[in-house]
Write a protein that binds this DNA or RNA. Structure first.
Lengths: 144, 144
DNA sequence: ATGAGTGCAAAGGCTTTGCATTAGG
DNA sequence: CCTAATGCAAAGCCTTTGCACTCAT
């Protein structure tokens, strides 16, 4: 079950020697409400009073504290979402056409298989995997 | 089995109304020899006579022609690799520490499972997937 | 000849940073 | 109080583009 976003954010920031300020709380709140990865323009659209530089700076801090994850795609802007343990393990549907990213979960069986594959790979190549990332690339309902 | 890179590149470029020039051939050759995704500095290091702008421009052309795939990560430079049907279907080991990307293949069973998952997702969400991308995130042998 | 390709240099555009000010603890 | 955080503006940096030149057809 997901951890409480604000509580966890506060804890992790404190552990990192950072404060949980209003701007940071607003960012966590915005990402939490959104439920899908947001690009900077999306975030600034939702929080017009938040300066761009503060958004970038605080998202960087939140990322380092392990509260937020940054997703880079081929589109112009990076996207941000809450760290996985603040939501739930999921994957992405990346629309080639409009760039939006939608969250999905896949069958447990498949997740298990991937975790096992990660272990196998670690053994055979010396690479130690801490997480995996599965994106499905295609076109979303509205663009299809 | 993989297609011949140069032959395929020539064909796809011709189909796209483009020529298979020396610079483009060199790029395909470089990526082909590398066997793993290369960042621009890597490429320019291998081909010092190639101007940066030509590298970018031709990689863009090759990408549009379906010969090259661009991979964006959290590191500063994008990376380029030959299109999947010129190599073989594979996934990536992304090193969080040094940024290098290594190619790996995973068990056929797992690939099948993912393809089925893609179909299922398409049915339930209206998203139509054309490909998938699985990256294992962690630390590589040299950084571990 | 004639249009695609090239290479240099300059511009674009997302992101980061310097610095004076403000606010949280 | 005092350091971290903020906000504005300016700079950075990867990447793209304008333009004149070259080369292949």
């Amino acid at each position: 079950m997901p951890l409480d976003p604000h509580l966890t954010a506060a804890n992790r920031l404190r552990a990192a020697g950072q404060r949980y300020t209003t701007n940071r709380r607003d960012l966590v709140e915005t990402l939490s409400e959104s439920g899908q990865p947001m690009a900077i323009p999306d975030i600034l659209g939702t929080r017009p009073e938040l300066p761009q530089s503060s958004a970038y700076r605080n998202l960087a801090v939140l990322e380092q504290a392990g509260v937020v994850r940054r997703i880079v795609t081929n589109e112009e802007f990076a996207r941000f979402e809450l760290a996985e343990d603040l939501t739930e393990h999921h994957h992405h549907l990346v629309c080639m056409s409009c760039g939006t990213i939608e969250d999905v979960t896949i069958p447990t069986r498949l997740e298990r298989g991937m975790e096992r594959a990660m272990t196998d790979v670690a053994e055979s190549t010396g690479f130690s995997a801490v997480s995996h990332r599965l994106d499905l690339i295609g076109t979303c309902k509205s663009c299809g």
